[in-house]
């Protein structure tokens, strides 16, 4: 029993790490741009298919393929900003609808390029660590955990210690006042979209060998990400990380001890409970204008 419990904890930590990457990206885009990016799950999918194309089909080293996933999907984010979100800056609903359109474009492109069937990727390594009798952590999963911690730490340092980080937070709080400091809104939103999309892409790329990508894999991811950012408090980066950890633990434990469908229901109930008790989310402050 102890082994099963510990193994479930290990699994939950793994789930929390890639969910954090996705949710933090979504929150960053919402915070700076004020739009809900519905295509975020498909950006995750695009990251996974970067690994399918480069690593599985073209034999590029796995790490290089993951880095390419981050850069390629980050570039897709810049494209979205340029093509949709900038022209629709004063129209958040328009931005949301445009992102749904982009989601369909990405899905269709993946179907045309790779087919609707699951892509199976041979894991770059089969090695595993036996933490104790019966508790196993594969190198592949450990790599996802380490990469997530490294990337989120780097993001934290960027936001707290660099002038572009201050500028990004300033834009998220008051765009006009930020412009009065000489901060270019276009430049900051471009950076935010690159980081936000890139984090989703790298999450997809890192987990691709573990999940068997399909063109429709973004769907369940975006629902999970929405639950997480609502629980954490929309616009709260720290809240997204904490909520991702909370959600991952609840979901993983319920999946292990009951089943996956019950876990999805429990996840939604968790969101409802938070909304009833603290409608602004666990970390949400008063609503900002």
């Amino acid at each position: 029993m102890t082994e099963l419990l510990l193994q479930t904890v290990v699994n939950a930590v793994y789930a929390a790490s890639y969910m954090s990457l996705i949710a933090v990206g979504l929150v960053l885009i919402f915070g700076v741009m004020g739009v809900i990016n519905f295509a975020h799950g498909e950006l995750y999918m695009a990251g996974a298919y970067t690994v399918v194309a480069l690593y599985s089909q073209m034999n590029v080293p796995f790490l290089a393929a993951v880095a390419a996933g981050l850069i390629f999907v980050g570039a897709l984010g810049i494209l979205m900003e340029y093509a949709f979100f900038r022209p629709l800056r004063d129209n958040p609903l328009g931005g949301l609808i445009a992102s749904i359109g982009f989601l369909l474009i990405l899905q269709t492109t993946a179907v045309l390029g790779f087919g609707v069937r699951m892509a199976h990727i041979k894991p770059p390594t089969q090695a595993k660590i036996e933490l104790m009798e019966g508790v196993v952590l594969t190198h592949q999963r450990l790599f996802v955990i380490v990469a997530a911690i490294a990337l989120l730490s780097a993001l934290y340092v960027f936001l707290r210690k660099t002038k572009f980080g201050w500028a990004m937070r300033a834009c998220a709080q008051d765009k006009e006042a930020a412009a009065l400091q000489g901060i270019s809104l276009n430049q900051i939103t471009r950076i935010a979209m690159f980081i936000g999309a890139g984090l989703a892409g790298v999450a997809g790329a890192l987990t691709a060998p573990l999940v068997s990508p399909t063109p429709y894999m973004g769907h369940s991811v975006i629902v999970t990400a929405f639950i997480i950012i609502i629980v954490g408090g929309i616009g709260q980066l720290e809240g997204a990380v904490v909520a991702a950890i909370l959600y991952a633990f609840v979901h993983t434990f319920v999946t292990t001890f009951f089943d996956g469908v019950v876990a999805d229901i429990v996840g939604l109930v968790l969101m409802l409970v938070v909304l009833v008790i603290k409608p602004t989310g666990l970390f949400g402050a008063k609503e900002r204008a």
């Binding site: 201050w166 500028a167 937070r169 300033a170 709080q173 008051d174 006042a177 400091q181 900002r288």
Partner: peptide, 16 residues
């Protein structure tokens, strides 16, 4: 900027 520290607020003024 309410959720920036006093020092961070001042430093944003020197952004350029």
């Amino acid at each position: 900027f309410p959720d920036l520290t006093v020092e961070e607020n001042l430093r944003t003024g020197a952004f350029l």
